[in-house]
Design a protein around this nucleic acid. Structure first.
Lengths: 119, 119
DNA sequence: GCATTACTTAGCCATTGCCCTAAGTAAAGC
DNA sequence: GCTTTACTTAGGGCAATGGCTAAGTAATGC
C-alpha cells in the first residue's frame, strides 16, 4: 500500500500546470471526451494531448477509447498521496508547536518553583 | 486575500521535487542554516541553493542572513492555497456524487409510484 | 464511397529545470 | 593578517517541458 518512489514528484508536477488543473476541475464535475476537455484550453490538440498523457501517467485520470472518441474520467482516490504528504507536514509542524508549548510551560513552572533547566 | 495567478503553479511545482520536499520536511521540525539543510542533499551547494531559491520564490520559506550564515524557516500558512485547491476539488467531486445520489433516489421514487422522468 | 470528425504520430523549436565546476566575497577563527 | 567557513556568482551541459505544424489513421455520417 506504499506509494512508488517518485510518485509524489509526478503528482505534484502534474498539478503544477494550469491547463492540467483546469482539466481536473472540469473532470471533477463528471467524465468528458477529449474534444470537450480540449475546447477551453485554446491550444493545438497535440499539445493538449501531451497534458492529458501527463495526467494519465500520474494516475490522476483514466481514458478509454470508444470508436474514434476517447473518454476521460478522474481516478477516485488519486489525490490521496498528495493530501497525505500535506497532512504529514502539518503533523510535523504542529508536533513542533506542541513541543514548543510544552517547553514554555515547563520553563514557566520551573521559574515559579525556582528549579532550573540544568541536569 | 485572493491568490496571485500562477501561485498554485509555483507552489505545486516547488513541491514536485524530492530535494525540496525533503527540505520542507526538515524545516517543519524547526529552522536551520543552509549548511545544515544542504548536508543530506548530496549535491553541490550552488545546485542546492537553486532549490532553496525556488522554495523562497514560492513563498514556502523565508531566509535571513546573519554574518556569513543564512538561516531558513518555514512560512506558517504557506500550504494553504494548495490545501484549498485540493479541498475545492473534493467539494466538486462530492457535490457530483451528491447529485448522482439525488438522481438515483428520485429515479427509485419515480419507479415506485409509476411517474416517469419525461416532462 | 467520399467527406468529416476525432484523434494520433512525427518532428521541430524555445525555454526551463537540474546538475556540475571554478572562482569570488565576506565574516569568523586563530 | 592569513585561513577557514559559508555562501555567492558565473557559466556550461543536457534532458524534460510546453508549445507549434503537417500529415496520417480510423470511425462516422451522408
Amino acid at each position: 500500500m506504499n506509494l512508488a518512489p517518485g510518485q509524489l514528484d509526478t503528482l505534484f508536477t502534474a498539478l503544477g500546470d494550469p491547463t492540467r488543473r483546469a482539466m481536473l476541475e472540469r473532470l471533477a464535475r463528471g467524465p468528458a471526451t477529449v474534444t470537450e476537455l480540449a475546447a477551453p484550453a485554446g491550444m493545438a490538440l497535440p499539445s493538449f494531448m501531451a497534458h492529458l498523457r501527463r495526467l494519465e501517467a500520474a494516475g490522476l485520470v483514466t481514458t478509454r477509447k470508444e470508436g474514434r472518441v476517447r473518454h476521460v474520467e478522474l481516478v477516485p482516490g488519486a489525490f490521496t498521496p498528495v493530501r497525505g504528504w500535506l497532512e504529514e507536514q502539518r503533523a510535523l509542524w504542529e508536533g513542533r508547536l506542541d513541543r514548543l508549548d510544552d517547553y514554555v510551560t515547563r520553563l514557566m513552572k520551573e521559574r515559579d518553583n525556582g528549579t532550573g533547566p540544568e541536569d
